[in-house]
């Protein structure tokens, strides 16, 4: 099945004895025209999965770095149509790299969930992460995504206890994104021991791969998390590079991504 790039990518990384590298950038940052080159740099640097952020005026779960990226993207006139065009072009250049749209509910449902799911599917997107649609409000987007064969990737957090976990997993597919810090993006990193305990807890409820994100900035941190997780998500640190270098950021993004990938490859995935 060609559609399931996400599962096959996690399987391949597992075979290679390492965690998958999941990278996030905000679509349209610094401009829609520059985003393609940034995505190519991520792939060239060794990113296994790509999360493409859909900019929103009110990114409530994000820290200063990604807030600013959202504002830069919107300030550059980024529209939903641009995000879909960026995804479509990416899919043509990279037929096998999983692409996930990540963002907030309102831009996703504005034209109706069916419209969004269909447009995302046509653009070659594999899955969607929506910060503010928890399981309880699944009807808002979940059925439309599943009808198009798209993964609805859910977030688990330090507050997702044993009683709560089954609810989070319900209707969840692709992988499980573990937000390792109760807080916003780009801030402090969780203690390694707490991440290990959380992954054991999540694995007791699901066979889905678990990717860990929030606060991972250095190759060393990525390597450490990579020893216990199926995937390591890095976002704000890449956004900082784009903020510093603007349209000329691509080579820097590639170098940084390559350093993360190299760090992951040096470690065996403990199972």
């Amino acid at each position: 099945m060609t559609a399931d790039r996400i599962s096959s990518t996690f399987a391949r990384c597992r075979d290679e004895g390492r965690a998958a590298l999941v990278t996030f950038i905000t679509g349209g940052d610094p401009t829609p025209a520059d985003t393609g080159a940034m995505l190519d740099a991520l792939v060239a640097g060794g990113a296994d999965l790509i999360e493409l952020g859909m900019p929103f005026t009110d990114p409530m779960a994000d820290g200063p770095a990604i807030q600013a990226a959202n504002l830069r993207a919107l300030g550059a006139g980024t529209k939903t149509a641009d995000i879909l065009a960026i995804a479509t072009a990416f899919r043509q250049r990279h037929p096998h790299v999983p692409l996930i749209l990540m963002g907030y509910a309102n831009p996703m449902i504005r034209r109706g969930p069916d419209w969004f799911a269909k447009a995302a599917k046509e653009a070659g997107v594999d899955g969607v992460i929506c910060v503010d649609i928890p399981t309880e409000e699944d009807q808002e987007l979940g059925p439309a995504l599943r009808a198009e064969g798209l993964h609805f990737i859910r977030l688990a957090t330090p507050t997702t206890d044993k009683a709560r976990l089954p609810a989070v997993l319900q209707g969840s597919s692709g992988f499980l994104y573990y937000v390792s810090v109760a807080g916003i993006t780009g801030k402090q990193q969780a203690a390694q021991a707490s991440i290990e305990a959380a992954i054991a807890h999540l694995k007791s409820g699901t066979d889905l791969p678990v990717a860990v994100g929030f606060g991972i900035r250095t190759p060393e941190q990525a390597a450490a998390v990579g020893t216990v997780a199926d995937g390591v998500v890095v976002g704000s640190a890449i956004i900082d590079i784009i903020a510093a270098h603007g349209a000329a950021a691509a080579p820097h993004v590639q170098d940084y991504t390559a350093s993360l990938r190299a760090a992951l490859e040096q470690k065996e995935v403990a199972r």
């Binding site: 409530m60 779960a61 509910a105 910060v131 503010d132 649609i133 928890p134 309880e136 409000e137 808002e140 859910r154 977030l155 688990a156 957090t157 330090p158 507050t159 997702t160 206890d161 709560r164 989070v168 937000v179 109760a182 807080g183």
Partner: peptide, 12 residues
């Protein structure tokens, strides 16, 4: 209405 919040806040 509803409860459109990040998962961290749901249990709370």
């Amino acid at each position: 209405g509803g409860r459109y919040v990040a998962e961290t806040l749901m249990p709370l």
